[in-house]
Design a protein around this nucleic acid. Structure first.
Length: 428
RNA sequence: GGAGAGGUGGCCGAGCGGCUGAAGGCGCUCCCCUGCUAAGGGAGUAUGGGGUUUAUAGCCCCAUCGAGGGUUCGAAUCCCUCCCUCUCCGCCA
């Protein structure tokens, strides 16, 4: 959510900066609503003040034993007018709030100009794609050839966009999770967290998935006799970031760095034709997520650091990748700036997204009322939130299958994973 | 699943229809006193919003006692719904 004050004072500039990401802010609608809100609020508060003072004098008169009938007559009708005014104000405020919740974050000035994926800018590249002495297969073929990747059974059990891993491949999947968690906790200074996979609507609104992107989520059916609606998390960002919702964090507890491994569930409603083959785009996948809650002055530095933490995993696995700075038209709704990490996939001869690292500045914090006490002012101020995948586990497994495949159909086990796989160096 | 007790400021805790945005205590900040430490005395200490102001400070006003409705001239206090916590019984990985 954007700062209401900023919208009030500088709406044209905000509109201009939002235009960079292709969002048309309805300046007139906003200005008009905001103006009538102001007028209505003043009127309502006047009525409230009148009611309060009249009620007080009724109380005082009553205490002295005086006749209160004339006072009651004075107050007659006031409560009716107040109710009408309050209802109108609430309705308008809700409308204004709905509009505010649908406005995306303002792209940072360092975010490149552009409309789509095509305009993203490569920042750096690491590793040389391997030269194959045979035609590289894609991960589906590699996995199915060793008999440890099964989409057919998964489709029978659940449907499309699910998979079953078995034997060494299932173990390697688990090894990746262990390796990532260990590295981020032991080396990079994150605190490991275990978090809920079902969350409420408030949490999703806090991080920005709701109200706008409900169709991307899996919702649990409502149970009788309760008003509680649960959603399956689309990313651990939701529970991890919402840990600090409605909190005022003491300065000595800043920054907070969280890491968690969770499954993620996405309906993939808008991507029917895309990546239907393989495990690139699944309804259910595992991810190790990094989240930092930082002082406002430190968030951009934190984004750089966090991106390097995610890159470190790719380097440890010796997987070639590049870092892309997403252009204004391609960054996510809540993000102010985003780096995508794209890993080289020999089967597709393409770089594909394996991690997305973003700085949200105070956009999520404002929705969540997540604040810290700034010792300089003594006042609670909004924190900044930063997060990124470190990494998407399924896609990492894809990258390993394709980059580590051998001519005989076997797959080498990356060195750093071998201790987690009983010393095994190759799977067949 | 059954029975009960609760949710109040940074924390503990009183209040159960008007003078309570909230007693008292702890913590914290500042000041005084004391050779240092300890102890003591005094003052202050929620958040959001509207108005005033060039702006801050200040001042005035409004809202907030788990959330949302209702009763009432007036609700932390009464009623309803929901959420959460705790205790006992049952069931269970």
């Amino acid at each position: 959510m954007l700062d209401l004050k900023l919208l009030r004072t500088d709406i044209n500039d905000v509109a201009l900066r939002l235009k960079r990401r292709g969002f048309e802010l309805d300046v007139n609608a906003f200005t008009q609503m905001e103006e009538s809100r102001r007028v209505l609020q003043q009127k309502t508060q006047e009525l409230q003040a009148e009611r309060n003072s009249k009620s007080k004098s009724i109380g005082q008169a009553k205490a002295k034993g005086e006749d209160i009938t004339p006072l009651l007559q004075e107050v007659d009708g006031l409560s009716e007018a107040l109710k009408t005014s309050e209802q109108a104000l609430n309705a308008l405020q809700d409308k204004l709030n709905d509009m505010l919740l649908d406005i995306p974050n303002i792209p940072h000035e360092t975010v490149p100009e552009g409309k789509s994926e095509e305009d993203n800018v490569e920042i750096r590249r690491w590793g040389e794609p391997r030269q194959f002495e045979f035609v590289a297969k894609d991960h589906v073929e590699v996995g199915e050839n060793i008999g440890q990747l099964d989409f057919e059974s998964a489709a029978k059990i659940s449907g499309s966009r699910f998979m079953i891993l078995s034997a060494e491949l299932a173990r390697m999947h688990r090894a990746l999770i262990q390796y990532m968690l260990n590295k981020h906790t032991d080396v990079n200074g994150y605190q490991e967290m275990y978090v809920p996979y079902l969350v409420n609507a408030d949490s999703l609104q806090g991080t920005g998935q709701l109200p706008k992107f409900e169709e991307d989520l899996f919702a649990i059916r409502e149970h009788e006799g309760t008003s509680q609606q649960y959603y399956l998390i689309p990313t651990a960002e939701v529970p991890l970031t919402n840990i600090v919702r409605d909190n005022i964090i003491p300065p000595d507890q800043m920054p907070k760095r969280f890491v968690a491994h969770t499954p993620c569930f996405r309906s993939e409603a808008g991507s029917y034709g895309r990546d239907t083959r393989g495990m690139i785009r699944q309804h259910q996948f595992e991810k190790v997520e990094l989240v930092q809650i930082v002082r406002p002055t430190e968030s951009h530095q934190a984004l750089e650091a966090l991106t390097l933490h995610a890159e470190g995993i790719l380097q440890d696995l010796n997987l070639p990748y590049r870092v892309m700075s997403l252009c204004a038209g391609d960054i996510g709704f809540s993000a102010c700036k985003t780096y995508d990490l794209e890993v080289w996939l020999p089967g597709q001869e393409k770089y594909r997204e394996i991690s997305s690292c973003s700085n949200f500045e105070d956009f999520q914090a404002r929705r969540m009322k997540a604040r810290w006490r700034n010792p300089e002012s003594g006042k609670p101020e909004l924190v900044h939130t930063v997060n990124g995948s470190g990494l998407a586990v399924g896609r990492t497994l894809v990258a390993i299958l394709e980059n580590y495949q051998q001519a005989d159909g076997s797959v080498k086990v990356p060195e750093v994973l071998q201790p987690f796989m009983g010393g095994k160096t190759s799977i067949l």
